[in-house]
Design a protein around this nucleic acid. Structure first.
Lengths: 229, 229
DNA sequence: CTAACCTGTAACAAAAGCGTCACAAATCAA
DNA sequence: TTGATTTGTGACGCTTTTGTTACAGGTTAG
């Protein structure tokens, strides 16, 4: 339970603060200032998770994340991105399909710990479980694919994320605002109706091959994934 | 559902804006201009969350947050800090004073609501009050659904709120006026007979699957939820 | 570089739920 | 019993919410 967590962040105040709070939570923090250094530490220490700053001297955090994803030995190493608030966040979000989560600065220690533990838990529970099946649906997270029955169904990135989120939290209503937060990210400021359209597209994809109403509307509240009725 | 949220902020424009948006989201905003005033309101009204400006006349927001954390009666009261953009130091100080989250000015109403709801949700999950059962009724707040016996019944927003309120306060008579206040909100000016019609609709929903008379009329007084007779 | 694809938004259509009213039924006070 | 008061019930516009389609801009793959 004393997971090693590597912090790659050039600003020492933030780095220290994160390390302090991780330690208080029973983790073993490792600190790095640059990607070059991080590469070595990852090889030597085999951390369980990486907290990666988006802005790094030399190679950017995103590029570094990409590189980690390309390498077979680090492909499954969970990464949480630390990003600054700003216009470029959208870009980050669009590009970082390989990143497990991201935290926007400034963040509270509680939020940071919550996300770290969530990602660690995810890795533990479903270490081998890259697939989740519900009814005749199978979501293949590793391959980023959706199976319905025997067939493979083509599904867009947003639809996939939306379905993934809903399936991970079934029998529970989420408002449009909450879905925007969880699926699109906390700082994607979009129309709430955008959610409706994607729900519609998702339903179309699902019902093209089956006839279930997994994705349900709760009037005045939001949407819900349920296998009942 | 109607959580009380205290806004401590000396700039009235910001305060009003926040209050307006909170109200639109179904919350009950309370407003204060200073820490002294806030202390009294917290004691009197028992809010569920505090939005605290970091710059306050007299005592600073951070100092006030620290004080709240020291006091046993307010130790668990969630605090969201409102800070101006900039200064790294603020971040560190704020985090150490134990606040739950941060919002950096200027912020959008959607972001503010998202964070408020996130913090409230976090507090609720610990409380684990997601389902309430009475007799063969089970109200599932998370799924926004009503179970009767084995069956699942879908229920409209107003009926759901009405039933929720009655079930939370069973064996007690509420007048139409009181029900309008608690279910529809203090500033909904409707005919009192509207309550009758919704009671009727609720009864229909309940008796469609069972034959109980949970919702009882008390002539001249109002309605009551009761499991006997 | 082009074509296919995906995305977010707007506009319109459909559906659902809401509040009010009018009248029926029930209850109460004489 | 009778008349008055209270509550139950069904119907009807109206508003709000959601479904659906179309489209313009942007991105990706080939």
């Amino acid at each position: 339970m004393t997971e090693k967590i590597l912090i790659v962040e050039d600003e020492s105040a933030i780095r220290e603060m994160i390390a302090f709070n991780l330690q208080r939570d029973g983790k073993t923090p490792l600190q790095c200032e640059s990607a070059v250094e991080a590469e070595r530490v990852i090889a030597d220490e085999q951390p369980d998770l990486v907290l990666l700053d988006w802005m790094l001297p030399g190679i950017s955090g995103i590029e570094f994340a990409r590189r980690l994803r390309r390498d077979d030995t680090t492909r499954k190493l969970p990464i949480i991105m630390l990003t600054a608030r700003g216009a470029e966040d959208d870009k980050v979000h669009g590009l970082n399909s390989g990143v497990d989560d991201y935290i926007v600065k400034p963040f509270s220690s509680r939020e940071m710990l919550a996300r770290v533990n969530a990602v660690l838990r995810r890795g533990r529970d479903g270490g081998a479980e890259d697939k989740v099946s519900v009814g005749d649906l199978t979501i293949d997270y590793a391959a980023h694919r959706l199976h319905i029955g025997d067939g493979i169904v083509n599904i867009g990135p947003t639809e996939f994320k939306l379905l993934s989120f809903l399936v991970r939290h079934p029998e529970r209503v989420y408002s449009r605002s909450q879905l925007l937060d969880h699926v699109w990210g906390r700082n994607a400021y979009l129309e709430e109706r955008t959610v409706d359209v994607h729900i519609r597209r998702l339903r179309q994809t699902l019902e093209a091959s089956g006839h279930h109403r997994y994705v349900q509307t709760v009037r005045g509240a939001g949407y819900r994934f349920s296998t009942h009725i």
